[in-house]
Amino acid sequence: MKTVHPLPDAASVVPVRQPLISVDKLTVDMPLGRSGSSVRIVDGVDFTIGVGERVALVGESGSGKSLTARALMRLDRLAKLSGRVDFDGTDLLKLSDRDMGKLRGSSIAMVFQDPMSFLDPLMTIGDQVAETLRIRGIGKAEARKRALAVLDELGVDRAAERLDAYPHEFSGGMRQRVVLAMALVGEPRLLIADEPTTALDVRVQDQVLDLLDDVSTRRGLAVLFITHDLGVVAGFAERVMVMYSGRIVEDGEVASVFAKPSHPYTQGLIKAVPRIDQDLNTLYAIPGAPPPPLARPSGCPFHPRCDQRFDRCGVDLPALQPVGMSRVACHLLDGKGA
C-alpha cells in the first residue's frame, strides 16, 4: 500500500509548479508574559509551496517550525506576524479576521500532533467533522452526509454507526483519522500537518502516513509536513526544508539533500539517524543544544555547534542562497577566504 517515490536523478528537470503559497520574510514574535517585550521565534523565513507539492519542514524542538506553520493560518492569537504570506495572490497577513476565518478550513487546513487533545471531548465525532461545513452555512443533513463520506474514505470502520460517538470512545489511530477528516472535509488546497504521527505508535504511524500519501495524491493536495523524523521525510515528501533557530538553513529536493547535504546542520541531522547496519555504541549526536531564542549567538546561529566553523561564522549572518537546485544558508559555500 505504501507508495514508493522514485528518486529523481540529478539530470531530471525540476517540474515547474504553479506556486500555491509563497512566504516572504515571515517573522513571528511571541510576547514575554505581560512585560510588553517579545521574543522573535521565527526570524525571516522565505519559501514557496507549489500546487499539489509535498514539502517537509524539519528541525529540532524549538526551531520555530510549528509557529511558522501556525503563522500561515494566523492561529496563534498572541503571535505578532510580519512579512508576507501570499496564498492564491492575496496576502493573508493583511486579511481581516473574518476573511481569514473564511479561508481556514476551506483553503488551508491543519492536522495536529496529538489527536486526543485536539478533539473537543464534549462533542460527537460526526458533529466535529461536519462543523467545518456547518460553519459555512451548509445544512445539517448535507454536512453529516459529507462528514460520513470523508470518514469512510479515511477508513474509519463502521463510520455510520460511530458518527454519534465521542472522542474518548476511539483509539489513537482512529482519532487521528477523525482529525484528518476534520481537515479534509472542507476540501482545502493546502494541508498543514504538524507532527501528525509523533504521538502515535509505529504501526499506526505507518497507517496514517499511507493515508495522507493516498489522499494527497488523489486530491492533488499540497502538504506542508512538519516533523523531526527524517525517515518520514524520505518516505513522504518531495522537498525538504531544514529549520534552525527560527531560520531556514537548507531547502531542496529530498533526494539531493539526503544524498549530499550542504549545510553542516543538515549533515549532522542525517548523520544522527540511526542505521540498521551501524554499531549502536557509536550513535552520533550533534554536540550542544539549539540556542534559546533570547540568547541567539551572533553571526550564524549554528556556529557554536558547527565542526566546520571559521572566523566569519561568528560575525555575519549567512543568507539563504541558491546552490544548484537547492538553497543553503552557510558561509562555507562562499569559500573560507571570501
Binding site: R70, M73, L75, D97, R98, G101, K102, L103, R104, G105, S106, A109, M110, F112, D114, S117, F118, L119, D120, P121, L122, M123, E131, T132, I135, R136, V179, M182, A183, G186
Partner: peptide, 22 residues
Amino acid sequence: RSDFIMAVRAKGATARHMLVRH
C-alpha cells in the same frame, strides 16, 4: 489555551462560535 480550541479555530470558526459551542 487547550489544543482543541486551536483546532476549532483552524476549521474557520468565528470567535463567537468557538466560545459558545466549545
